[in-house]
Simulated scan of single mutants.
Amino acid sequence: MIEEMETIEEFLAQHSADVEEAVRKAAAAEIMPRFRSLAAHEVDQKSGPHDLVTDADRLAEQYLTETLGDLLPGSVVVGEEAVHANPATYDAIRGDAPVWIVDPVDGTRQFVHGDPGFCTLVTLAHRGVPLASWTYAPVPDQFATAVRGQGAYLNGERLTAGSPAPGADLRIAHSHPDYTTDEQKRALLGLRTESVAPRPCGSAGLEYLAIARGELDATAFSWEAAWDHAAGILLVEEAGGAHRTLTGEPFRITGGNALPFTAARDEETARRVVELLNKAA
């Protein structure tokens, strides 16, 4: 089993491109052939009408689970659909083995409705720390990568989140009302104020990418599933951004965060969003 950080860094130096290839192949083989071609029997509900899963989710996760596990012997895979089937598998994120965190189709709701706003997310983490991430939006063929301490890139170009334009409204994507409790809705009401332009989010992975590209100022999310956030949190960090929970602490992929939390283009914006959320909570 790989246990030392230096060894994992060596793995990334040698195999990051192999991970990208695996993600692309999963999308080409299992996701894109079903885009706008899903049959009724290929779509199911998990916890309710807003929580959907498709054959594309299941089969792409199966492909990535097998491929990534082979790439890094001794690692484990925590995938969204596997955790739905067996919640205990989520505990591996807190363990000592390197862990692949996989969201095969982030934005399943959009995917089902034929909207191109979905992506595949993969993160390699160790002892609760995201070390590398891969974000792939197959329709526009946008591939973003981040390695801790080495920056964030989109199709090979360095990403810099920058700071919000002086005097402009803060553009904030927040949890969709369909996925929030009454208490969380109250906290998010803090964004309904002067100089803030809030809107419901789409795919979490693509919202994080928008921050890293300097196209969105912040997010405000009310759930903490690692497969939705680990890749994007690292991408934003490596593009110069920041993330904070309701108590002002950094977001932890291992859970136990004070929610909602924010990721933002810079530290000042992150603290401003937390302030707004706390005022209404």
Rank of each mutant, 00 (worst) to 15 (best):
Y208R: 03
T160V: 15
G117R: 13
L159G: 07
E215K: 12
Y179G: 07
V139K: 13
G190D: 11
D178G: 10
V196N: 02
V99G: 03
R192P: 02
R148V: 12
D106F: 05
I101N: 00
A197Q: 14
G190M: 10
A146F: 05
I101M: 03
V105F: 05
A212T: 00
A161E: 13
T181G: 09
G214I: 06
Q150P: 01
S203L: 06
W134D: 02
D141L: 01
P140T: 00
E194Y: 11
L159F: 05
D106H: 04
L170Q: 07
V112R: 05
C119N: 07
R171D: 11
Q150C: 10
A161R: 12
V196I: 07
R213A: 11
D141R: 06
T145D: 05
V112M: 03
H176A: 13
R127K: 15
V196L: 02
T180G: 04
E215L: 10
L124E: 00
S133W: 08
A137H: 00
D182C: 06
H113S: 14
R158M: 13
T180C: 15
L154N: 05
S175D: 07
G156E: 09
P130A: 11
D115Y: 12
F118S: 09
F118H: 08
S195Q: 15
D182L: 14
G107D: 04
G162H: 06
G107W: 03
V122M: 01
D115R: 10
A137F: 00
V129R: 15
D103I: 02
H126P: 06
L124C: 00
N155Y: 02
G149K: 09
A161Q: 13
R148F: 06
S163I: 07
T193R: 15
P104F: 07
R158Q: 15
I101K: 03
L154G: 03
D217F: 08
L206P: 05
Q184M: 14
P198G: 02
V105W: 06
L154A: 04
P98Q: 09
S175W: 03
T108N: 08
D103G: 01
S175F: 05
A212R: 05
I101G: 02
Y136F: 14
V105Y: 07
G128H: 07
T193F: 05
Y136P: 00
L131E: 12
G114L: 04
G151F: 12
N155T: 03
A204N: 09
P200F: 12
A173D: 12
T135N: 04
A132F: 09
G190L: 10
L121K: 09
I172L: 02
L131F: 11
